[in-house]
Design a protein around this nucleic acid. Structure first.
Length: 565
RNA sequence: GCGGGCGUAGCUCAGUGGUAGAGCAUCACGUUGCCAACGUGAGGGUCGAGGGUUCAAGUCCCUUCGCCCGCUCCA
């Protein structure tokens, strides 16, 4: 160690963490590997190494514990009652009609049109909306039109102004637009069109297509790219759901889909759960599992991958209470992520604007984390959506099975003191978390470079999720210390092995062993030294501060138990 | 899908057509004994993959795969 003064570590806001350094650590220490690595990798798929697998399992277990087994840490719901949830585990492949009912099939099969000029994708069914709202050149060109003849949709054109636009502004805004490339030719086709059918002049849409077409006789009218003006290619369905076949033949009849979200499996069993479990609305059903989306652009390690794991709760309640439950879960989910170490300004709750909501949603919030690759912006960790009664209603309609609920605690009071009951379609609040994104956020948040320490890279994982719970080191590999260390290791394994590794290492210098544990995110190291043999005490070293204290060897498991949460 | 950058040891990277390299890490032995100590040694590479040019390719050309960044997409 040098004696030269070390400058204070820059604050996290001033120096964004290096994603490259985080990725190197992930691979070096076995958190994340590229899937099919030795075959060159496969785009959009990532595997977890030993530490990553355990980190993610700890995150999943924490979710399971805090959302299903002891929901919301025992917080009372809006009505003052205990929150009730039950677990469920549903298949990745479900009946294909499920995705028809949920809207995923239609939504996912949207034909996309690709621009050969700039590679831009446009949804075929939203072409005119897109061009009117987003296209710079279109809106610039629009200003060159004369006002339309009163009472018609047909703008009048002024060939001279359009020509000037094509030679000037158009060149920059829409370099590939036919009108810009060959204005004389295009304008002559337009003049021809107007002269041939004076009774029905071209409207704005037709005119726009003329401007995007170099040879209408040869190609027919084409639709120009909203970005660069080149004629868009043929619509092709862009399927965001993975497909396969269940059965002997690869026929249309046997086509099935890998689920793009776990939630639908839960809705399908709403009635089964009510009928088989003594639950009453309000209650929740929790489900974790893999989902699949054929993302166009997988990016940023596990942040957007094509196979990922969700942890979703579908919480069913009476429509009148739904907003209160929405608020309840939204606030709890934020607190939950904070409790795992994502405290501070890197975590925000973002309420969606009205125009951002799905047509059925009465409110949606995202828990968002400032990842190094999104900074200064944020990336979604979890969405908490008020889905109304949309899903149950959809499945009721498509399956023709009644999914409404008869609530015997509501309705008029009967003469005998009971309630008449009320039949209604429950509303659903859905906190849906991405476990891979969560694990990645924990790694990014924990990753710390402290140049003042001899081992600058530290992974400050919360003890509850840390894959290595503790390390036991004999200071020297002799004089009876290894034997004491081995006994303590066995003891800690028995007590804490279910939630993480207990490391033990006698090789190399103590500093090197501490440093290795810092980088792997191990929160506590217990060191057996010469004094241990005399007075039965060990030193505890804290990962985040490097500070040490001395405790009795018989107090170690209690000490650890308190802090692992 | 487009544009740009990159791909050489576990990690970070050098290598300017002519013998495959360094630091760190890993392992062994010795020394040391509370913060990546020191010494000596060892293992580890189809230079992402395939093809081409050349007497000769990590290096030049083509194709392809993957990662990163910017667009784009994200029901």
């Amino acid at each position: 160690m040098s004696d030269t003064p070390v400058p204070a570590a820059p604050s996290s806001a001033a120096a964004p963490k290096s994603m490259d350094a985080i990725m190197a650590l992930c691979k070096r220490r076995g958190f994340v590997f590229q899937a099919s690595d030795i075959y060159g990798g496969i785009n959009g798929f990532w595997d977890y190494g030993p530490l990553g697998a355990q980190l993610k399992k700890n995150l999943r277990d924490a979710w399971w514990q805090d959302m299903v087994m002891n929901p919301a840490w025992g917080r009372k719901g809006p009505g003052g009652e205990r929150v009730r949830c039950v677990p469920l585990e549903t298949c990745i492949i479900q009946h294909p009609k499920v995705w028809e009912a949920s809207g995923h099939l239609a939504g996912f099969a949207d034909p996309m049109r690709k621009c050969p000029g700039c590679g831009h994708f446009v949804r075929a069914d939203q072409y005119w909306d897109t061009i009117a709202q987003w296209s710079e050149w279109f809106n610039s060109l629009l200003q060159e039109y004369e006002p339309s003849v009163e009472g018609t949709q047909h703008p009048r054109i002024n060939a001279e102004r359009l020509f000037k636009w094509a030679r000037g502004k158009g060149k920059r805004a829409a370099p590939n637009l036919a009108l810009v490339r060959t204005p004389e030719v295009v304008l002559s086709f337009v003049a021809e069109r107007i002269a041939s059918q004076p009774a029905s002049p071209p409207d704005l849409k037709e005119m726009t297509q003329y401007f995007g077409t170099a040879q209408p006789g040869a190609t027919g009218l084409q639709q120009p790219c909203p970005r660069c003006g080149a004629p868009l290619g043929e619509p092709a369905p862009f399927k965001l759901m993975f497909e396969t076949y269940a059965g002997l033949t690869q026929s249309e009849d046997n086509r099935v889909y890998l689920r793009p979200e776990t939630a639908q499996g839960v809705f399908l069993h709403f009635k089964n759960v009510v009928d088989s479990t003594r639950v009453r609305v309000p209650f929740g059903i929790g489900n974790t599992g893999r989902s699949f989306r054929n993302e166009i652009t997988p990016r940023n390690l596990t942040y957007r991958s094509r196979e990922f794991e969700q942890a979703e709760l579908e919480f069913f309640c009476h429509p009148d209470e739904s907003m209160a439950w929405y608020t309840f879960w939204r606030d709890f989910r934020m607190d939950w992520w904070k409790s795992l170490g994502l405290a501070g300004e890197n975590l925000i709750l973002r309420e969606h604007a009205k125009d951002e909501l799905s047509h059925y949603s009465m409110g949606t919030s995202d828990v968002e984390y400032r990842f190094p690759f999104t900074a200064p912006g944020f990336g979604e960790l979890e969405g908490i959506a008020h889905r109304g009664c949309y899903d149950l209603t959809q499945h009721q309609t498509h399956s023709k099975v009644k999914l409404d609920y008869f609530d015997t605690t509501r309705g008029e009071t009967l003469p005998n003191g009971g309630k008449k009951g009320e039949r209604y379609m429950p509303h659903c609040i859905e906190p849906a978390a991405g476990l891979d994104r969560g694990a990645l956020a924990l790694i990014c948040e924990g990753y710390t470079v402290d140049p003042s320490r001899p081992s600058p890279e530290i992974l400050k994982l919360h003890p509850r999720v840390a894959p290595i719970k503790a390390a036991v080191f004999p200071l020297m590999d002799k004089d009876g210390m290894p034997e004491v260390a081995e006994k303590l290791t066995d003891d800690l394994f028995a007590k804490f092995g279910k939630s993480g590794f207990i490391e033990s290492d006698a090789k190399q210098s103590i500093g090197k062993r501490y440093a290795r544990m810092d980088e792997a995110g191990c929160p506590f190291c217990f060191t057996i030294d010469g004094d241990t043999l005399k007075d039965q005490t060990v030193t505890v070293r804290d990962r985040d501060t490097g500070k040490q204290e001395r405790i009795g060897i018989d107090k170690v498991s209690g000490y650890l138990g308190e802090r692992l949460g």
